[in-house]
């Protein structure tokens, strides 16, 4: 009897293990690789490869990953940072990614772009959800992030086993899907994504209705969670609005955020829209996507200004003379500069 039980348990465990392995391996093969296009899909996962202790991590949406270059910050100020922002990253996704980040690499400063405070429970974009969440390592935070983000047709199981979502790609698999199934080349620049285009005239983009002057309940709820979390972890939090040249931000938003930040020690708010001139941003040269994002030139200008602001205010260390950092980060900066040259040359 005892033998039968042991045999049955062994067989069941083997079956479960085999099943899990199949699910995970297939998930790796069938998930989109985001290598040649939509590179922002790799931001979340690439973070786990970061092996230097970080001084600052920047959360937010695509406006952040196009605006703050950790490599420029290294070159100018010598602190180590990472951009952990994704396309349409909501407040709840930032919250869970923040928790996930602190578990692996606890920074001295967290900044959060508040552009997505405008979007509440009714905001859900499956493609953006997948890009943000699929790259997270399995944890309660990943599950929490998926649960908070899913729209009605999505299922939690597909975030645990991506094959449930991506099996339909069977007729579009390429060699790359096998080649990069288990190891992907680094395609972002410490979370920064380069944009080389230019926009001359502002577009009618995401224009807000007068009724939108209040933040949605879910966004405020998660902002409070983020502030509570940073306070409990004793990590200073800077709420910020990255500069865009489109009119989708009301003064009421600033007022509300200032009010909320005041209630928390170690929490500040700044709207960099107001400092566009001081930063030196040129609306004809430095923006893409209908002035909603910065291109590489705008990003360099903004990073320089932003870096100075946080370095002074939060006393971030300069590691340029530290061998543990300089070798890695100087190489990263070189790669960054070379790829900008290549990108610009390709445009010509």
């Amino acid at each position: 009897m005892k033998d039968t039980i042991i045999k049955t348990i062994t067989k069941s465990a083997a079956a479960v293990l085999l099943g899990m392995t199949i699910l995970l391996v297939l998930g790796r093969i069938f998930s989109p690789k985001y290598i040649n296009e939509n590179r922002d899909g790799n931001i979340t996962a690439e973070f786990y490869g970061e092996d230097t202790p970080l001084d600052a991590v920047f959360f937010g949406s695509s406006t952040v990953y196009n605006a703050i270059s950790p490599d420029v910050l290294w070159d100018r100020y010598g602190f180590a940072s990472y951009t952990r922002a994704n396309a349409s990253q909501t407040l709840w996704q930032s919250y869970y990614l923040m928790r996930d980040t602190v578990r692996y690499n606890r920074p001295k400063l967290i900044t959060l772009d508040v552009s997505f405070m405008k979007y509440g429970a009714d905001f859900a974009e499956e493609a953006a959800n997948r890009k943000t969440i699929d790259g997270m390592r399995f944890s309660a935070d990943k599950l929490g992030c998926a649960k908070a983000s899913m729209w009605e047709d999505e299922s939690l199981s597909s975030y645990i086993f991506p094959i449930f979502r991506f099996h339909s790609r069977w007729d579009e698999l390429t060699e790359d899907d096998l080649r990069f199934a288990f190891r992907r080349p680094k395609v972002t620049y410490e979370g920064f994504i380069m944009e080389f285009g230019r926009t001359d005239e502002p577009e009618e983009f995401g224009k807000l209705k007068p009724g939108d002057r209040l933040f949605p309940e879910k966004a405020e709820e998660y902002l409070v969670k983020i502030m509570d979390y940073c306070r409990d972890e004793d990590i200073p939090l800077l709420l910020m609005k990255t500069p865009t040249y489109i009119n989708t931000w009301f003064p009421e938003y600033d007022k509300r955020l200032e009010e909320m930040a005041k209630g928390y020690e170690g929490c500040d708010y700044i709207n960099f829209d107001r400092a566009a001139e001081e930063i030196g941003l040129d609306r004809r040269e430095d923006y893409v996507d209908g002035h909603s994002h910065l291109n590489v030139d705008g990003a360099r200008k903004f990073s320089v200004c932003f870096g100075r602001y946080i370095k002074d205010r939060y006393d971030l260390p300069d590691h340029r003379g530290d061998d543990r950092y300089s070798g890695v980060w100087n190489d990263r900066y070189t790669r960054y500069c070379m790829d900008i040259e290549k990108g610009k040359a390709a445009l010509k």
């Binding site: 597909s158 449930f164 099996h167 339909s168």
Partner: peptide
């Protein structure tokens, strides 16, 4: 038997009509 069941399960996972898009 194990290989057979594994193959069938894999076929279901890949070629099954389920989830978003189906």
């Amino acid at each position: 038997r194990w290989v057979f069941c594994t193959v069938v399960l894999t076929m279901i996972l890949i070629f099954g009509s389920y989830g978003i898009g189906y």
